[in-house]
Each structure stands twice: as structure tokens, then as C-alpha cells.
């Protein structure tokens, strides 16, 4: 699920060999150090659960964003956004706005995919409050992402806004290459239905996000 084949993006990495080098090292060592870093990193996870090891292998997008430290040139940016938009899948019902109550619940919930998380049949959370302000009643919110308070009240819920919001959660890099936000749908952290619930939390006029 981690691998996203894109020969074009892979080729871009190979072609653009010259990024900023760390100040304290002579440039001649940089390529060797890249390789050493990968070896050392791979060795660091030798004893953990083997089925999780695939996670440390970077997909094309992770590799490119690492390479450019999240600031790729315009042409690469465009390539990423195009390829990532093509990954978006929608709920089979076609409904992009689900239940804001379920959305609030998953926004609070950080469960899922940590190596200690092994409760059977417990869905993953989205942990939105870790990084975003949402409903005003929740004061314990993070600030790594922008405030989403009054998200729907400010934007309305036109078809364009609904699709944009869904896509943004499913795969933020479809709209902003190398965004810090996890690609919740693409990596199957959340299901399309859960993402629709998160969309409802943001856009439903009855959602606490859009109340005072």
C-alpha cells in the first residue's frame, strides 16, 4: 500500500542530484552519506514487528519530499499533485458528507497504526485535534495545522468545496505537494466513509465547528 509507482517522479530524483548539502561536510561525501544514512536507518528497526518493517521504505512522494525538504521546484510540485489526485477514491454511496458526530469522535481519537495498537476491529482515529482547532469546546488542540474553526461557516458547502475538502483529507498532496498533513485515505489510515464523516464535521451547518 506504500508504494506508488511513478517512473516520471523516480526519474526526477535521479536527474536532480544537486540539492543543498549540509554545511559541515564536504560535498564529495554527500552521496555516500545518503547511502550510509539509509543503511543505518534500516538497521535501527531490526527487532520490531517484521510486518511493520515495510513502513520505513519510502514511496516516491516521500522520497522526493525528503530530497527537496518539502520545497520541490514547480514542475515537480505539479507532477506530485497530478499523481496524487489520481489516488483519491470516494465512498461507494457517492455521499461525501457523512455524520459530523462520528467525525468529531474520530477527530478526537489518536488510536491506530502505532506499534502497540493491536485492538481487533477498532477503527483508526484521525487525531485531527492533535494539529487543528475545530469545535470551540475543545481547548486542547494543536497548532501544526491551521485553525478549522468555522471552516464551513466561512466557505459554505458548494459541491466544489465539498470535493476539495474530501480530497484534502484523502490526499493533501493532491492539492499541496509535500504538505505536512498525512495522506489519510491514500495510506488507508481512514476509510472513505470515515473521511466523509470528517468532511461533515467541517461542513455540516449543525456541526459544532460551525457554531459559536
Amino acid at each position: 500500500m506504500m508504494t506508488m509507482h511513478s517512473p516520471v517522479l523516480a526519474a526526477l530524483i535521479v536527474l536532480s542530484g544537486c540539492v543543498a548539502q549540509p554545511a559541515e561536510l564536504p560535498p564529495a561525501n554527500a552521496g555516500e552519506l545518503d547511502q550510509r544514512a539509509e543503511i543505518v536507518f534500516n538497521e535501527a528497526f531490526a527487532k520490531g514487528r517484521p510486518e511493520l518493517r515495510a513502513r520505513i521504505v519510502q514511496d516516491d512522494v516521500q522520497q522526493i519530499c525528503t530530497h527537496y525538504r518539502n520545497a520541490p521546484p514547480a514542475n515537480v510540485r505539479q507532477q506530485i499533485e497530478t499523481s496524487q489526485l489520481a489516488t483519491v477514491r470516494y465512498p461507494s454511496s457517492g455521499k461525501l458528507i457523512g455524520d459530523w458526530r462520528k467525525g468529531e469522535k474520530l477527530a478526537q481519537d489518536g488510536y491506530g497504526l502505532r506499534f502497540t495498537d493491536s485492538t481487533k476491529n477498532r477503527p483508526n482515529g484521525g487525531n485531527c485535534y492533535a494539529c487543528h482547532q475545530l469545535a470551540p469546546a475543545e481547548l486542547s488542540y494543536g497548532t501544526l495545522g491551521p485553525s478549522l474553526y468555522h471552516y464551513g461557516k466561512l466557505r459554505g458547502a458548494s459541491e466544489e468545496i465539498v470535493t476539495y475538502t474530501y480530497n484534502k483529507i484523502y490526499n493533501p498532496q493532491a492539492l499541496s505537494a509535500c504538505s505536512n498533513m498525512p495522506r489519510f485515505g491514500h495510506h488507508r489510515v481512514l476509510t472513505p466513509e470515515q473521511i466523509a464523516d470528517a468532511v461533515a464535521l467541517l461542513l455540516d451547518p449543525e456541526s459544532p465547528v460551525n457554531k459559536n
Binding site: 513502513r55 497504526l113 495510506h187
Partner: peptide
């Protein structure tokens, strides 16, 4: 040099690197 590279290395189902949370000032998780 290895540490610097690993600091910026994004991976995993959340696409995180150390830099995701630790390269801007005044930010919080919760």
C-alpha cells in the same frame, strides 16, 4: 550527516519526519 538526513526523512503511513513537528517555532500537538 546521518542524523541530519534522518531528521528530514519522511516515511510511514503518516508521512512524518522529525522535521514535521520540530522545524517551526511556537507550534503544539494538542
Amino acid at each position: 550527516g546521518i542524523g541530519e538526513r534522518l531528521f528530514y526523512r519522511r516515511a510511514g503511513p503518516h508521512d512524518f519526519s522529525c522535521a514535521t513537528c520540530h522545524s517551526e517555532s511556537g507550534k503544539r500537538i494538542r
